[in-house]
Computed example of a mutant assay.
Amino acid sequence: MDVCTAPKLREDLEIIRGMDDHPLVFDPQGGTYHRLTRSAAALLRQFDGTRSMDELSALMAERRGVAAEGVRRELDTFVAELTRSGLLVGTEPERPAKKRAGGRFGTSMLMPRFVVTRALPAVLEPAARPLRRIPALLSVGVFAAGGVLGILLGLYTVLTSAPPAEELLGTGTLVAIVLMLFQILVHESAHAMVAQVLGVPVRGLGVALLFYFMPLAYVDRTDAYRVRSRGGRVLLALAGPLSDGWFTGAAALLVLTADGPVAQVAGALLIFQMLNLVTNVNPMLPSDGYAAIEAGFGLVDARGRAFALLKHRLLGRPLPGFLERMPVRSRRLHLVYGLVCSVYTVALGYFVVQSLIWSFALVGRSMP
Rank of each mutant, 00 (worst) to 15 (best):
H22M: 12
T171M: 09
D21K: 04
E92I: 06
S287A: 12
L59T: 14
R305W: 01
T91C: 05
Q46R: 13
A306C: 11
A237G: 10
V346N: 09
F360T: 10
A266R: 05
L339E: 10
A136N: 10
F360C: 08
Q183A: 14
I293G: 01
F182L: 15
L253C: 15
Q196T: 13
M274R: 12
L82R: 08
L314S: 13
R313L: 14
M1R: 13
F360V: 11
L137S: 14
F297P: 00
P130L: 09
A162R: 15
G249F: 02
V158D: 14
V66S: 07
V116P: 09
A144I: 04
R73F: 10
G231A: 09
R113L: 05
L44S: 07
D76H: 10
I357E: 12
G245I: 02
G170F: 01
G146Y: 07
A237I: 09
V265A: 07
G245N: 04
V116F: 10
G86S: 08
L209Q: 02
R113W: 01
S359F: 13
S52E: 06
V300Q: 02
L269D: 05
A292S: 11
A239G: 07
V219N: 00
L168H: 02
F360I: 12
A80K: 02
E55I: 09
G150H: 02
M326D: 06
T171E: 13
D27P: 12
R118Y: 03
P241A: 06
R45G: 12
L210W: 03
V25P: 00
R133P: 02
W358T: 13
W246V: 10
A162I: 07
M214S: 10
P112W: 01
L124H: 04
R51N: 14
V194K: 00
P368A: 12
G18M: 09
L36M: 14
F78K: 01
V255D: 03
G260E: 11
T345S: 06
P283Y: 06
R203Y: 07
R118D: 07
G240M: 03
L270P: 06
A67T: 14
V352P: 03
D54Q: 12
R329G: 06
I357W: 11
M214H: 10
A192V: 05
V194L: 07
G364N: 11
I15F: 08
